[in-house]
Nucleic acid binder design. Structure first.
Length: 289
DNA sequence: CTTTAGACGAAGTATTA
DNA sequence: TAATAATTCGTCTAAAG
């Protein structure tokens, strides 16, 4: 097994893609298209994450569906573990219903995760987060469910390092970017959630996939960011811009012919051309010296 | 004609007190 | 909560392919 590569034998249980990337450097397996992390043992994601060695990982992949990362919320009804996910949720609703907003929220979570092609564990965890917010009395009359649910989805994505930007979420949300951001800050504060900065490299597989770029380009782009790590470029506020710049640089450096334009990169990454350029300058300066 | 490069003000954001 | 500093965006101009 290579240090990092694609094994076509595995298929993403979520989106059917065979673009499963094996990154043994970071000890993880993830889908390049939907971002589903199939297995990993990175430590700093939170207390609920456990480590698996490679043997266990392989076994799990072969036995089919990925493990579910559901953490039962002990303060609320814990469903029978053998029930499928959808049934679980329905049953939960009937347990503590009386609150119609919960039903709406869960439906909205379903709708949005489907629209964004997000893996199931994200869907589940967002539901858990919503319940947590309920428990903390954060769901009140006057607060928009749309705002909160969208913000929660973003938070879960960040926690699980599944790359979706606030902008992308806003696009499928019934709320606006501004409102979602407000709700996001609100939730972070009230629930005391700490989020690690996004690693720009997380966006690269998906962007490359969208653009139809080769594995070689993708690896190169990731490599470029790796070299750059910790210099200040990588921890910028707009990680997508950095990711786009790295991809662009990778295409220029290797595949002279079928390169993508800055504009195409900008569109996929959801940033502007000038932003990519400014990131590019930093990256080039780093490599030059 | 298309793509890339640089610069400017405007606008919105994170951080700090 | 308000002010400050740093960043991004859109657009314009110009050069290069």
């Amino acid at each position: 097994m290579g240090e990092r590569g694609v094994d076509r034998i595995y298929k993403c249980p979520e989106c059917e893609s065979r673009n499963i990337i094996t990154d043994s450097k970071h000890a993880e397996l993830y889908c390049a298209d939907c971002g589903l992390v199939i297995a990993e043992n990175i430590v700093d994601l939170g207390p609920e994450w456990r480590s698996y060695d490679e043997e266990q990982t392989a076994k799990r992949i072969r036995t089919g569906p990925p493990m579910t990362y559901r953490i039962p919320d002990k303060g609320l009804g814990t469903p029978a573990p053998e029930l499928p996910a959808r049934t679980k949720r329905l049953r939960w609703i009937s347990i503590d219903s009386g609150d119609k907003t919960l039903v709406l929220a869960l439906l909205e979570i379903d709708r949005m995760t489907d629209a964004l092609k997000l893996p199931n564990n994200i869907k589940e965890e967002t539901s858990v987060l919503y319940r947590k917010a309920m428990k903390h009395n954060l769901i009140k009359k006057g607060r928009s469910i749309e705002d909160l649910v969208s913000a929660m989805l973003y938070i879960t994505c960040r926690q699980y390092e599944v790359p979706r930007t606030l902008k992308e979420i806003a696009e499928v949300s019934r709320s606006s970017l501004k409102k979602i951001r407000r709700a996001y800050i609100f939730l972070i504060r009230k629930l005391g959630i700490k989020l690690a900065p996004v690693n720009p490299a997380r966006y690269i597989p998906r962007f490359c996939s969208k653009l139809g770029l080769s594995e070689e380009i993708r690896e190169r782009a990731i490599e470029i960011l790796r070299d750059d790590e910790g210099t200040g470029v990588a921890k910028g506020w707009e990680p997508t811009g950095t990711a786009a710049a790295a991809i662009y640089l990778a295409t220029v450096l290797s595949g002279e012919k079928r390169k993508k334009t800055e504009l195409e990169l900008a569109k996929v990454a959801g940033v502007s051309v000038p932003t990519i350029r400014s990131r590019l300058k930093f990256l080039e300066r780093q490599r030059g010296s």
